[in-house]
């Protein structure tokens, strides 16, 4: 009897039988490939179903380009704002003690449990034509709903917790000793922030920004409510995908959708690289 069969026949008491392992393993692999992976594959297959030329035409057409530009603009405003908030909130929450701290932490996570449609609805109720502030702002000539401002607000709402929730556990773990040492050695508040705090949290921060950006660029429900779907003006990439799809222009719809799928793939690759390379420097729970 060879060594190999020997090992197979000996069943370690803290492991499942080989057959059980094989069945469970195969099932999990097939589940991921067939259920999670196929939607990604079908996007690219459908995107090129009418050939490369049709694909290129769909993604370089005027409305598509303005949708891409708008999505980039909205993310470029929403992500830095939420990053600033994340840093400020994490600093206040992790380096100091105050009453109501756990309430604040819970409230930061709140947008994750709110439906995207409600995230858009709240701004319509505030700033819409029949909203609380809408008529007043209208007289001042300020429009929020059906404009880029509305899209930005709705996007900030849905991506609100991403950076903060990465930084809070990380900065909690790191404590205050390094910052205190910097201050004792004569550093100013800003010097301490730039030279101690920021370098300590940079990978966790990048991780949060990455996820925040992916969601900001891909958000659909919330922006759909406030957008008004004005082509070339308030149409982000996901909304453009919907319009093309509802016009039965499937190949073009999937072509534009494939840009978002690429974004998702790049995000996943960067996210995995961060986890593998800097797992220790990202908040607990992402360590691999």
């Amino acid at each position: 009897m060879s060594d190999r069969t020997d090992r197979r026949l000996f069943q370690p008491p803290t492991q499942e039988r080989f057959g059980t392992k094989l069945v469970l393993g195969l099932f999990a692999v097939l589940y991921i490939l067939l259920f999670l992976m196929t939607p990604l594959v079908v996007v690219f297959v459908e995107a090129f179903s009418k050939g490369v030329d049709a694909f290129l035409a769909a993604v370089t057409e005027k409305d598509a380009l303005s949708a891409i530009w708008l999505t980039l603009t909205v993310a470029a405003i929403a992500v830095p704002l939420n990053t600033m908030f994340g840093l400020a909130a994490a600093w206040a929450v992790t380096k100091f003690d105050f009453k109501g701290k756990s309430i604040l932490i819970t409230l930061i996570d709140l947008p994750f449990s709110v439906s995207p449609v409600i995230s858009g609805l709240v701004y319509v109720l505030l700033f819409g034509a029949q909203g609380y502030l809408g008529p007043m702002l209208d007289e001042l000539g300020i429009k929020v709903i059906f404009t880029v401002t509305g899209l930005v607000l709705a996007t900030i709402f849905v991506t609100f917790p991403f950076v903060a929730r990465e930084l809070i556990p990380l900065m909690q773990e790191q404590g205050v000793s390094e910052e205190e040492a910097a201050l004792t050695l004569g550093a100013s508040g800003w010097q301490m922030f730039w030279r101690v705090t920021l370098p300590n949290v940079r990978w966790g921060l990048l991780y949060g920004v990455l996820l925040c950006n992916a969601r900001a660029m891909g958000e659909f429900g919330a922006v759909s409510v406030v957008s008004g779907h004005i082509r070339g003006l308030t149409n982000t990439v996901p909304l453009h995908v919907e319009i093309l799809y509802n016009e039965y222009n499937f190949a073009a719809s999937f072509a534009v959708a494939s840009l978002l799928a690429m974004l998702a793939l790049v995000t996943l690759v960067l996210k995995s690289l961060l986890e593998w390379q800097f797992g220790e420097n990202i908040a607990a729970g992402h360590r691999h």
């Binding site: 992916a214 998702a264 793939l265 996943l268």
Partner: peptide, 11 residues
């Protein structure tokens, strides 16, 4: 998590 919901929907 990563795939925008509208893309997942049409796929």
């Amino acid at each position: 998590f990563a795939l925008p919901t509208a893309v997942a929907g049409i796929a």
